[in-house]
Design a protein around this nucleic acid. Structure first.
Length: 502
DNA sequence: GGACGGTGAAACTTCAGGTTGCCTC
DNA sequence: GAAGTTTCACCGTCC
């Protein structure tokens, strides 16, 4: 079958679903393809309706300035078709899901996002791509995942049955699919506890919550987990616990109270007895931070170097929590390295050498910091997305994680006696939250004012809240439109009144 | 002769996703 | 593996 043929057959399948007045989920292997496929389907549909037009408008205007992606989604939604992947804004995802549940959107083209978690059943599930690029190259997706997708077919409350359809490109592929996904067994599930960062975090939180007070307690606890059941080798688990404890101690997150204890420490013979969290360690556990991340942040803050907003952002970005980083593309390599020269002095940890194995990953994290840095310097969102080839939803997701890390950074600095840095960290956090230069922070205290409107006001010489108080609502309307002008005028007078009362 | 622009084929790149953590400045 | 993007040779046109 040629690809044109398979396109036609696929489109026929979709049309057939619509003719039956049913809904379908279409699974594909990339975000780009989800968008393209949705467009192809939408182009073949003529009719729209008033409700869909409204939904489309709502989707388009989720951001102050609609991005290309917003417009693309809004356009297909008019035809009752949508795409769905991690790059969408949360609000848009929510709308698409709701409208699908209500039956207004008939077809969703999506990446595997929709196979998990969310309960969005459809009469028909069409799996267009069963191969995907991953760490093993272009390969078959796991059986477990395909079956997860099949499971979306059939809505208990509406249909007696559901259909899951896989698309094969030829006879041989069809056989392979049958073998692999229909007759095949799903893969075994492995415990995630064995992964170092998870293990570290758990260990510290057990100690911090007072659940485990000795190394023996810890061994007992871990030996009852699914991990131990699978792993079987208790001796090795003991060894791993011992090793990790000495790291946590070295990082000053735990301490040993030397009391008599018959239990022998498997790893660190010098210490025995009760394990207690330090105040710092307890806070790390409360913040749900990976102890290694916390340690790296603390170490960075203690360096002699002068610290800037970039330093703080970069320090928080170079952590596990913000992975996966943006990837430095082949073409960008030189440019990113050049920018590294400009920022070298603001980086608070050792930069790997170009021949080091970690160098590429370091550059990726550096590029990710640059995205954040451009964001707080008010780069226009659309060009930022273009420049870093990142989608609006991904940018928001990353910013949210960075916000949490900056808060954590603030807490760690406070506990570690670095009051001198708190101002800088706080300011950085605010700038990241709103994506603005420092000069706009005052205006952003107003509700309904984001980076775009605040910049507009500032450029019109309204720079502070007292400027807002002074200017007439009439003048303000010219800049911000009627609704916003009225709204913020009310806010400043209300603020004034509470002040007077005090 | 040389600058410029259009064209298309070849070469090169890129490619899913992820729960909650905190506090409200 | 497939789709999108960039590069580059080639050709025609105009000054």
């Amino acid at each position: 079958m040629s690809s044109k043929d398979s396109d036609d057959k696929f489109l026929h399948l979709v049309k057939d679903t619509l003719k039956k007045d049913k809904q379908a989920l279409v699974f594909v292997n990339t975000k780009q393809r989800a968008e393209r496929t949705a467009e192809i389907i939408a182009e073949s549909i003529k009719e729209s309706n008033e409700h869909l037009e409204e939904v489309s408008a709502e989707i388009e205007n989720v951001l102050a300035r609609p991005t290309k992606q917003c417009k693309r989604l809004a356009k297909v939604v008019k035809k009752g078709v949508a795409f769905h992947h991690s790059g969408l804004m949360a609000k848009q995802r929510e709308i698409v899901e709701d409208e699908f549940k209500k039956g207004n959107i008939k077809i969703i083209c999506c990446t595997p996002t929709l196979a998990y978690g969310l309960n969005l059943p459809a009469f028909r599930v069409i799996i267009r791509d069963l191969k995907r690029y991953g760490y093993r190259g272009y390969a078959w997706i796991p059986t477990l995942e395909a079956q997860q997708m099949f499971g979306r077919a059939g809505r208990p409350e509406y249909d007696k049955e559901g259909e899951a359809i896989c698309i094969a490109n030829d006879e041989r592929e069809a056989e392979e699919i049958l073998e692999r996904y229909i007759n095949g067994e799903p893969e075994d599930i492995y415990s995630k506890l064995a992964v170092e960062p998870v293990f570290r975090t758990y260990l510290l939180s057990l100690i911090s919550a007072g659940i485990s007070r000795t190394e023996e307690d810890l061994v007992n606890f871990f030996s009852k987990t699914f991990w131990a059941y699978q792993f079987k080798d208790i001796g090795r688990i003991k060894f791993m616990i011992g090793g990790m404890l000495s790291k946590l101690k070295e990082w000053k997150f735990i301490e040993y109270k030397s009391e008599s204890n018959s239990f022998t420490i498997a790893y660190d013979m010098d210490d025995g007895g009760i394990i207690k969290p330090t105040p710092l360690g307890r806070r790390v556990a409360e913040l749900y931070l990976d102890p290694l991340t916390a340690h790296k942040i603390l170490e960075g803050l203690e360096t002699e170097k002068d610290k800037t907003e970039f330093s703080i952002i970069n320090l928080c970005t170079n952590t596990l929590e913000l992975r996966p980083y943006l990837r430095v593309k082949v073409r960008e390599y030189d440019e990113i390295e050049e920018r590294l020269i400009d920022f070298e002095d603001e980086i608070l940890y050792d930069i790997p050498k170009p021949y080091d194995e970690e160098y590429d990953e370091f550059l990726n994290s550096f590029k990710t910091s640059l995205l954040f840095y451009d964001w707080i310097n008010e780069f226009d969102e659309e060009s930022l997305l273009e420049k870093y080839s990142v989608k609006p939803g991904e940018l928001r997701a990353k910013l949210k994680i960075l916000d949490w890390l900056l808060y954590s950074c603030h807490e760690l600095a406070k506990l570690n006696g670095r009051k001198d840095l708190l101002n800088l960290i706080n300011k950085t956090r605010l700038r990241v939250k709103y994506g603005v230069k420092e000069e706009l922070l005052d205006l952003l205290r107003l509700k309904g004012i984001g980076r775009v409107k605040a910049r507009k006001m500032f450029n019109n010489n309204i720079k502070t809240l007292s400027d807002v108080r002074r200017i007439s609502e009439f003048e303000l309307r010219k800049i911000l439109g009627e609704k916003t002008a009225k709204n913020i005028k009310e806010q400043v007078t209300a603020k004034q009144r509470t002040k007077e009362r005090l």
